[in-house]
Simulated scan of single mutants.
Amino acid sequence: MSYSIIGFGAVGQALARAFARKNIDVTVASRRPPETLIQQARAIGPTVVPRTLQEAIASDTIFLAVPFWEHREVAKQIATWQGKTIIDTTNAYGVAVADLDGLPSSAVVAKAFAGARFVKGFNHLPAAVLAADPNVNGGSRVVFLSSDDETAVAPVAALAEQLGFAPVALGPLKDGGLLVQAKGNSWAQLIFKDLVKFR
């Protein structure tokens, strides 16, 4: 299984740290050429490898960590996303509700990635918290997952556990997606809830 993170801002780097902590290889890419990411990637760890956007798209599982509307540019890179899993970490804070056609922001993103197995997740925590070790006082930091494809959630949940998090499935996007999205200038109920699960 190959992994990539598209977007190497605060959230993308936070996710890269999670992979580096577990020595799992991950490709990182952004709008900038890969050589401009080398210094930041090396500072995170040797398993974090900058590549081009096209190389990142070749991965099996892709974390989408770009500003909300930039998802369209990424989605246009290939005609079909069949066989790939997209994990949407975007937030639409500041995006007018009318611009979302009455849909949860994650449903808008899902429509752009035709054929993909699509999961909303890893988006409810501030980047600094997401970057921190998810092992907290003997428990694991919670990440929420939501998808209209039940079969897509299990492998993403397994990856979350591998990275040290405690995944909590919230159901389909119309329910779970609404709990972890920004809408206009407000945040949904579970955004910023830093929860820890004890086994």
Rank of each mutant, 00 (worst) to 15 (best):
M1P: 05
M1C: 09
Y3E: 09
Y3C: 10
I6C: 14
G9V: 07
V11Y: 07
Q13N: 03
Q13P: 08
Q13T: 02
A14D: 06
L15N: 03
R17F: 15
F19M: 04
I24G: 07
I24T: 11
T27C: 06
V28N: 07
V28Q: 03
A29T: 08
A29M: 13
P33V: 06
P34I: 11
P34A: 11
E35L: 09
Q39D: 10
Q39I: 12
Q40P: 00
A43Y: 05
P46T: 04
V48L: 06
V49S: 09
V49P: 06
T52D: 02
T52H: 03
L53M: 10
Q54G: 12
E55N: 14
A58R: 09
S59N: 05
D60F: 04
A65H: 05
F68M: 02
F68L: 01
R72D: 12
E73T: 14
E73P: 01
E73A: 12
V74S: 02
A75Y: 06
A75K: 07
Q77W: 15
W81T: 08
Q82G: 07
Q82A: 08
G83H: 03
T85Q: 08
T85S: 08
T85W: 10
I86T: 09
I86E: 02
I86N: 01
D88M: 03
D88C: 11
T89C: 15
T89F: 04
N91L: 00
Y93L: 00
V97T: 14
D101I: 01
D101Q: 14
G102I: 02
L103T: 00
P104R: 06
P104I: 10
A107H: 05
V109G: 08
A112M: 14
F113M: 11
A114D: 09
G115V: 15
A116H: 05
A116G: 07
A116Q: 02
A116P: 03
F118G: 08
K120L: 12
G121Q: 10
G121K: 05
F122C: 01
N123S: 03
L125C: 01
L125H: 01
L125I: 04
A127P: 06
A131M: 11
A132S: 08
D133P: 10
V136E: 12
V136M: 05
G139Q: 11
G139H: 14
S146Q: 08
S147R: 01
S147W: 15
T151M: 13
A152R: 06
P155L: 12
V156E: 08
A157C: 01
A160E: 14
Q162V: 13
G164S: 13
A166N: 06
V168D: 09
A169P: 11
A169Y: 15
A169E: 15
P172Q: 02
L173Q: 04
D175Y: 02
G176T: 04
G176Y: 10
G177C: 10
G177N: 07
L178M: 10
L178W: 13
A182L: 00
K183A: 01
G184L: 11
S186N: 08
S186R: 09
W187G: 10
W187E: 03
A188R: 02
Q189H: 15
Q189T: 09
K193Q: 04
K193T: 06
D194K: 12
D194I: 02
L195A: 14
V196W: 08
F198S: 15
F198Y: 15
R199T: 05
